[in-house]
Design a protein around this nucleic acid. Sequence first.
DNA 1: GATCGAACTTTCCAGAGTGGCAAGTATGTG
DNA 2: CACATACTTGCCACTCTGGAAAGTTCGATC
Lengths: 95, 95
Amino acid sequence: MAGLDPLIHAPTRLQLVTTLSAVSEAEFATVRAALDVSDSVLSKHVSALVEAGYLHSRKGVHAGRRTTWIGLTPAGRKALHEHVAALRRVIDAVE
Amino acid sequence: MAGLDPLIHAPTRLQLVTTLSAVSEAEFATVRAALDVSDSVLSKHVSALVEAGYLHSRKGVHAGRRTTWIGLTPAGRKALHEHVAALRRVIDAVE
DNA sequence: GATCGAACTTTCCAGAGTGGCAAGTATGTG
DNA sequence: CACATACTTGCCACTCTGGAAAGTTCGATC
């Protein structure tokens, strides 16, 4: 490889972590809508990344509804930054 | 998706086309060494991209050896540029 | 406090993608 | 013509990804 992180290189994963990189936490449903994926798909990606230590998730109540909040852990941010740096090294060769 | 091209988003594919983007043609063996993949893997990626119209390949003789030269077609360059642009849109949100 | 419904979670499944190994093929060289 | 080189192809195994649907959980409501 070229320093690309296989855990976050897939398109959906990359969009997930880049979306989360801008905020401290986001609601599951909001992310789901932003990525335009099904519940099950997002749930599976999230649990895979939680298990990898890249995300944390926390259950709460918001506006009378149960919601799950997810966000990047420090390790997740670090992995994203390294992945993005590696990606830039590859694509900066273009042009 | 977010404009990412599934034909060139896989790491090996991306490295292949970015490597070729800098030159007009490259030897199969040189590319194989640059990407550090096996003969069969490179051969299969190349034929997939040739079939997609992204690469051209041509057989020739060089220094007493048969060599295959591969390079991006205009369509391949266009696809790469669009893919890179889409990738930048995604990762520029980071930081 | 039993029931309902929303919000995920998990299971099951199908299909595509990727790579390794080994056998096959083609062709310049001696 | 025999041989070696340089890929090419077939076969296989495994992982990844996503969809559908059933399952689970727990706050809200009555």
